[in-house]
Measured scan of single mutants.
Amino acid sequence: NNDALSPAIRRLLAEWNLDASAIKGTGVGGRLTREDVEKHLAKA
């Protein structure tokens, strides 16, 4: 759900053309954090 994404995370996902549903969020309530996105990018 994009409503739970911060503007910074939305921008990062758009910049790298990533799908938020493909990344497991570790923040409060399962929210994506910058670290989650960076770890996903490191694996790719």
Rank of each mutant, 00 (worst) to 15 (best):
P7F: 07
R31V: 12
K43Q: 14
N1F: 10
A42G: 09
I23G: 01
L13K: 01
E15K: 15
T26V: 03
R10K: 14
G25F: 03
L13P: 00
L5S: 04
A14Q: 11
E15T: 08
H40F: 15
A22I: 09
V37M: 03
G30R: 02
A42F: 07
N2H: 13
V37A: 02
L32V: 10
N2W: 05
S6I: 06
E35D: 11
K24S: 09
K24Y: 06
L12M: 08
L5R: 04
G27D: 04
L18H: 03
S21W: 07
D3K: 09
R11Y: 12
K43Y: 12
D36H: 00
A44H: 14
A8L: 08
R34T: 11
A8H: 09
D19Q: 07
D36L: 02
D36Y: 01
E35C: 09
L13H: 01
G30H: 04
G27R: 01
A8N: 06
D19K: 07
N1Y: 09
R34I: 15
A44C: 14
I9L: 12
G25V: 04
L12R: 02
A42Q: 14
K39T: 12
L13T: 01
E38R: 07
N17M: 07
A4T: 11
G29N: 12
G30T: 02
G27S: 03
G30E: 05
R11M: 11
L32Y: 02
A14T: 11
D3H: 11
K24E: 11
A14V: 07
A14K: 11
K24V: 14
R10A: 12
L18V: 09
K39L: 13
V28W: 08
V28L: 12
G29S: 06
D3L: 10
G30Q: 04
A44T: 13
N2E: 14
N2G: 13
L32D: 00
E15G: 05
N17R: 07
A4Q: 12
R10T: 12
A14G: 05
E15P: 00
A8V: 08
S21Q: 11
E38G: 04
T26D: 02
K43E: 14
L13N: 00
A20H: 06
K39Q: 13
S21G: 10
E15L: 15
D36F: 01
S6K: 04
P7S: 10
G27H: 01
V37T: 01
R31P: 02
D36C: 01
G29I: 03
A20K: 05
A22R: 07
L41H: 08
R11S: 11
R31Y: 06
A44D: 08
R31F: 05
L12H: 02
V28M: 09
E15I: 14
E38F: 15
R34E: 11
A44Q: 14
V28H: 11
S21K: 12
H40L: 10
G29A: 09
A20I: 08
T33P: 01
R10H: 11
K39A: 15
D3E: 13
